[in-house]
């Protein structure tokens, strides 16, 4: 090869690649609308995006996995947390995480209430973009434990035992129809997902309280004077806690404000009654 030929090679290689790239770019533009639900980019979403930029959130957080690695990815945050929680967090993040424990916290961002709503609208739009299912499993902000180490062996056996007895009494019914197993699956898969806020390990309080031993606690709560809800039994209390979280709020500064629980109040609509039963069965089985 002489110099003229190699120059030709460089020029042609660049031109062909650039051409293919441009054609694919045009095709991508054809599809952006549908993939990103561009129709849902309301003025609030646009404003939220501008605030996201103006406040430099990207230089601590990642969004779509891009940004800085000092703070958690927020791509699907609205699917892990409800609006009530996010509003309260963004108003005053210092109430939520203990710097002594985690060694890093989010500084106050001095956002107005409408700015907060706009940001949440933007983050909610982001969470619905069709991005090939990334992340492959939810990225939690805090909490959860390494699988297998979150409960003692005895606790794991007791759940397994409950499921087995129930499966056995139902005769031919497979575990797929076992309410406890179904409840456990729902616990990790509904949106916003329960396990993003609740651990089932004893003493591990995240955004919400640990649900280990909730049935024993429920018994005490419904028989106490402070309780004003409708539930008559443990299963009823758990169901009520899910579809109407503010009926009774567990004490703790980062759990509620003005009697309104930070747990999403959307499950009443988004879950079917039998799904509430499965969740109650599962949580009731945690001793």
């Amino acid at each position: 090869m002489n110099k003229r030929q190699t120059r030709l090679f460089a020029g042609a290689a660049t031109a062909v690649s650039a051409l293919v790239f441009l054609v694919l770019t045009i095709d991508s533009h054809r599809q952006f609308g549908k993939l990103t639900n561009a129709d849902n980019i309301t003025p609030a979403v646009s404003r939220g995006k501008d605030i996201w930029h103006a406040k430099n959130c990207i230089n601590c957080h990642t969004l779509f996995g891009e940004g800085a690695y000092y703070a958690p990815d927020l791509t699907k945050i609205t699917q892990l947390r409800g609006n009530t929680y996010l509003e309260a967090f963004l108003r005053d993040p210092s109430k939520f995480y203990d710097e002594a424990k985690y060694r890093r916290v989010m500084p106050a961002q001095n956002l107005s209430d409408t700015e907060i709503l706009d940001l949440i609208a933007f983050l909610d739009w982001v969470s619905k973009v069709d991005n090939q299912g990334w992340p492959p499993r939810p990225i939690l902000v805090a909490g959860a434990t390494i699988p297998g180490t979150d409960r003692t062996v005895a606790q794991q056996q007791s759940v397994a035992a409950t499921s087995n007895t129930q499966a056995a009494t139902a005769g031919s019914v497979s575990t797929a129809d076992d309410p406890v197993a179904l409840g456990q699956a729902l616990f990790n898969s509904v949106s916003p997902s329960c396990n993003a806020c609740h651990s089932i390990a004893p003493g591990v309080n995240m955004v919400g309280p640990s649900l280990a031993g909730v049935s024993a606690r429920a018994q005490q709560i419904i028989s106490s004077h402070a309780y004003k809800g409708q539930a008559k039994d443990v299963a009823g209390y758990i169901r009520e806690s899910i579809h109407d979280p503010s009926a009774y709020v567990v004490t703790g500064a980062s759990y509620s404000a003005n009697g309104i629980s930070f747990m999403p109040n959307t499950y009443g609509q988004s879950l079917k009654p039998e799904q509430l039963d499965y969740l109650a069965a599962y949580l009731g089985s945690l001793k």
């Binding site: 460089a10 660049t14 690649s17 991005n131 090939q132």
Partner: peptide
């Protein structure tokens, strides 16, 4: 020149390694 050619053959379409999870076609 050869190096420049190789850079662009791979590098231009290689941009797509940043497009995996951001809401563009599969």
């Amino acid at each position: 020149y050869v190096i420049v050619g190789l850079v662009f053959i791979a590098g231009i379409l290689g941009t797509a390694h940043h497009y995996y999870w951001v809401g563009v076609p599969a």
